[in-house]
Simulated assay, not measured.
Amino acid sequence: MKAARVSAFGGPEAVQMAALDRPQPGPGEVLVRVQAVSVNYVDLVVIAGRYQFLPKLPFTPGKGPAGTIAALGEGVTGWAVGDRVLAMAEIGSYAEYTPAPANQCYRLPDAMPFTEAAALALAYDTAWFALRERARFQPGETVLVLGATGAVGLAAVALARALGGRVLAGVSSPAKAQLALDAGAEAIIDLSAPDIRESLRAQVRDATGGGAADIVIDPLGDVYFEAALRALAWRGRLVVVGFAAGAIPSVKANYLLVKNIEVSGLQISDYRKRVPQDVAACFAEIFSLYERGLVTPAPATVMPLEQVSQALALLRDRAVAGRIVLTP
């Protein structure tokens, strides 16, 4: 089978196509014939050797494929060959076939194309846990989403709006603002404005009629973290999702005390390993919202698997609006 391989950690150029034997599912696993798989920022981190859970070299990167079950491993029940699934495999998905834990596979709605399912993966589940579990979102609350035109950002905008929130979209490129508005944002917060420490809070006040954000979803970190803290309401909650803007920020604990605010972190892989039943509930709600027409992934850029290195470079350089999906 065709598969992307990494023999030495590095940039997108470290990913090369290779011919491998078709894998076999182990006990408790299914073999997924990959129909589509998204390209994710976390893949760049893994390939560079900077992720907290690093696979042994050489390896095939890629997470969260959508496809059909091609074979069942020992002890697997409840699934059949041919079932359409989204499989939350941690690695191995930039390939024609990949094994995945059976309890981390989720049955796709009949009307959902594989490319849309792949575009949901790792973005909508991350956004759901950030909103539902970490931030304890309630309908009517104001949610500020930083990096709102990235994969997780767009998902958080769409989900918060679908669940009854008021959404402010923080974008660093005003040219991409329409993406966030199309996803359901009520107002745009310009993250490229001068003196972001002051200007972000001022923009939130303007957008809310003098109010503040009840929740901040932060995939950026860096200077935007502190600026967003200042824009939180009393008893507000900020969820750290990543550090795509570069620097890892710190927070002064006295500021949390004075404003009665919370900062929490989200590492989505832990939920799949520790509480897979909660992830199943997550996807059940996401798929229900999809079937009711309340959320729809933004159109993705679809590329062949053989162009995986180019796709990763486009993602690294932020040269594509929305998600990139590979098809074997």
Rank of each mutant, 00 (worst) to 15 (best):
V258Q: 14
E306I: 11
L120W: 02
T77H: 11
L315I: 05
A148F: 00
A100L: 03
A187R: 14
K176T: 10
V152Y: 04
A127Y: 08
L289W: 07
A119D: 01
G28Q: 10
R205A: 14
G62Y: 09
L314E: 11
R107K: 12
Q35D: 15
D278C: 04
G147E: 08
L86Y: 06
S7R: 15
A48P: 00
L72N: 05
A123Q: 08
A70F: 10
A162I: 02
R201F: 07
L57W: 13
K56E: 15
A18S: 14
G165K: 02
G82C: 10
D222T: 02
A8V: 13
V76P: 00
G209T: 10
T301W: 08
Y224I: 01
P297G: 07
G62H: 07
R166S: 06
A111L: 10
E186W: 10
D206P: 00
Q16L: 12
A160P: 01
Q203K: 06
A89H: 04
V295S: 04
L326V: 11
A233W: 06
G67P: 05
P101K: 09
A100T: 02
Y271D: 06
P139S: 08
K176M: 05
Y94Q: 00
T142C: 05
P249K: 05
A298N: 08
A245Q: 04
V45N: 04
V275Q: 12
V76E: 01
R323N: 14
L108W: 09
A3G: 03
Q24P: 03
L154E: 02
P12I: 04
L168K: 00
P219F: 13
A244W: 04
C282N: 06
A48K: 10
P194Y: 13
E96W: 00
L86T: 04
V216G: 02
A80Q: 15
L289H: 07
F225S: 05
I324S: 01
P297K: 03
A185I: 06
G246D: 09
D218W: 08
A80F: 09
E29L: 04
P109S: 11
T296Q: 14
L312Y: 13
M112F: 07
A187D: 12
T98W: 00
S309A: 15
L220T: 03
L220A: 09
P328S: 08
A319E: 13
G62P: 04
L108T: 09
L72F: 09
A117P: 02
Y51W: 06
D317T: 12
L120H: 03
A121Q: 06
P328H: 08
Q310E: 15
V37Q: 07
P328L: 03
N103S: 07
G209I: 11
E226F: 02
G246S: 06
A102Y: 01
A130C: 10
A212S: 14
L57I: 12
A71F: 06
